[in-house]
Deep mutational scan, measured.
Amino acid sequence: YTAFGDLEVFLHGLGLEHMTDLLKERDITLRHLLTMREDEFTKNGITSKDQQKILAALKELQ
């Protein structure tokens, strides 16, 4: 049995499950992801397509 964390649930909701391992390897938490700047997305290997999905979701949360 494995409990999913906030990061996994957030990514799954956006259809971005493939990013879970990448972000965990880089010790990026959901809190960090929510406050990242555009250059940090790129530096951490997050594609512009995935970045757009994340940023759109963040706008909806605000």
Rank of each mutant, 00 (worst) to 15 (best):
D21C: 09
T20L: 14
L14Q: 09
T47R: 09
L23P: 03
H18S: 08
Y1M: 13
A3T: 14
R37A: 09
L55P: 04
K43S: 08
K43R: 10
N44C: 13
K53I: 05
F41E: 01
A56N: 11
A57V: 04
D21A: 11
H18W: 07
R31K: 13
L34A: 14
N44W: 11
T47D: 13
E60C: 08
L11S: 00
I28D: 04
H18Y: 10
D50P: 01
I54Y: 01
L14D: 01
L30P: 06
Q52V: 11
F41C: 07
G5E: 14
D39Y: 07
T2M: 07
L7C: 03
L61I: 12
T2I: 06
T42A: 13
Q52C: 07
K53L: 06
A3N: 14
H32I: 06
K49Y: 08
A3Q: 13
N44G: 04
M19P: 03
Y1C: 14
L11P: 01
G15A: 04
D50N: 06
S48F: 10
T35H: 04
Q51V: 08
T42S: 12
R26M: 00
F41D: 01
L22P: 09
E40F: 03
L61R: 15
L55G: 13
H18G: 07
T47L: 08
G5Q: 14
T35V: 06
I28S: 02
K53T: 09
S48E: 12
E60L: 14
H12Q: 15
R26V: 00
T47Y: 07
L22V: 13
L33A: 00
T47M: 10
Q52H: 10
L58S: 15
D39N: 09
L55A: 14
V9A: 14
L55S: 14
R37L: 05
T35W: 04
G45I: 02
L61K: 14
I54W: 03
L33E: 00
D6K: 04
L34N: 05
D50G: 01
I28T: 02
E8M: 05
L7M: 13
K43L: 08
L55E: 12
D21L: 07
M19Q: 04
A56G: 14
M36W: 12
Q62H: 04
K43V: 08
K59P: 15
E8I: 01
